[in-house]
Computed example of a mutant assay.
Amino acid sequence: MIRGGVVMLTVAALVGLGGCGNKEGDEFVGKWQSTKSAQSVEITRNDDGFIIANTTRGAMKGAVISAAYRDGALEVSTGGGTESIAYDKAHDAIVLPTMAGATPFSRVK
């Protein structure tokens, strides 16, 4: 009887942990394409932070910058301060600060 109880407890624990796999900021991870231009980026995890790599063809391809997750957004340090990258859950999109202003990007599926 004890053995059966241990098995049931183990199964219950595994079921309860099933939803705990997501880390804060997972919504940002992936490939993104600008809705206004040919710009594209890929966001990946790097230990506790994130790496944003420019995947656009041309001179800036391969350029990378690091980001940190804070208060529901990714923060990027720039020469002039800190910029935030917002995630729009309803449209599965992000808004990146670019030289042209805030630019929406949609997830590449």
Rank of each mutant, 00 (worst) to 15 (best):
W32N: 00
Q33W: 05
Q33I: 05
Q33N: 03
Q33K: 02
S34D: 01
S34K: 04
S34Q: 01
S34L: 07
T35A: 02
T35K: 03
K36V: 03
K36L: 04
K36E: 03
K36C: 03
K36P: 03
K36G: 07
S37I: 01
S37R: 06
S37T: 09
A38C: 01
A38P: 06
A38R: 08
A38W: 05
Q39G: 09
Q39I: 02
Q39D: 13
Q39F: 05
S40R: 02
S40A: 13
S40C: 09
S40F: 10
V41M: 02
V41D: 00
V41T: 08
E42Y: 00
E42L: 01
I43N: 07
I43H: 00
I43D: 05
T44D: 08
T44W: 08
T44F: 11
R45N: 15
R45W: 10
R45I: 11
R45G: 11
N46D: 13
D47E: 12
D47N: 15
D47S: 15
D47I: 14
D48Q: 14
D48F: 07
D48W: 11
D48C: 07
G49F: 14
F50I: 00
F50R: 06
I51Q: 14
I51N: 15
I51P: 07
I52F: 05
I52M: 09
I52C: 01
I52V: 12
I52G: 02
I52R: 07
A53V: 13
A53W: 12
A53H: 04
N54Y: 06
N54G: 13
N54Q: 14
T55I: 10
T55Q: 14
T55F: 01
T55Y: 00
T55S: 01
T56F: 07
T56M: 10
T56S: 01
R57A: 15
R57D: 15
R57M: 09
R57N: 11
R57K: 06
R57L: 13
G58V: 00
G58I: 04
G58C: 08
A59N: 06
A59Q: 14
M60L: 12
M60C: 13
K61T: 09
K61D: 12
G62W: 05
G62N: 03
G62C: 08
G62R: 07
G62H: 07
A63V: 14
A63D: 15
V64Q: 10
V64R: 10
V64W: 03
V64A: 06
I65G: 02
I65K: 07
I65L: 06
I65H: 01
I65F: 13
I65D: 07
S66P: 08
S66W: 08
S66C: 12
S66A: 07
S66N: 15
A67Q: 04
A67H: 11
A67D: 11
A67M: 14
Y69C: 12
Y69R: 12
Y69F: 11
Y69E: 10
Y69M: 09
Y69I: 12
Y69T: 14
